[in-house]
Amino acid sequence: MSGESIVRTFYAALGEGKILGTKCGECGSYSFPPKTACTECGSRDIEVVEMSGDGELQFYSSGGLPPLRFADYAPYAYGLVKLKEGPMWLTMIKGVEVVDHDKMEAFFTTLPVAVKAKIAEVAGTNIVTFEV
């Protein structure tokens, strides 16, 4: 590792509209978000790559007791996305119903559906959300 923080690099790149992950030189797997080893095989032979931002929404819900830092955003959708490159990621979901449970159930029966990454500032930080 160089003295450069991969976390700092990741958040800086979000500010420029880029979503970074890593690709493994040994097993070929993608990891997201970027850390210091491959999340599949543990290899340290990884390179930082730009992710497509494409994915599939597997499931989503809305927490009744959200973390304190997100209280002002409640109710919001929180979902499980399978990225096109393979990794699973939990994050906020835009463009879905969060109050009417009948509508949520009707939509649930259509899952998984394609979603697209949307960088958004939430609680003072740029994060990767996904939009239906």
Partner: peptide, 25 residues
């Protein structure tokens, strides 16, 4: 804390709702 928590980390959907929905599906 570096990534998951700033992205909305919430145990009730993650560990409650999603396996329930997955089982039904």
């Amino acid at each position: 804390q570096e990534y998951a928590v700033p992205h909305g980390w919430d145990i009730a959907p993650g560990y409650g709702a999603f396996p329930t929905l997955a089982y039904a599906q």
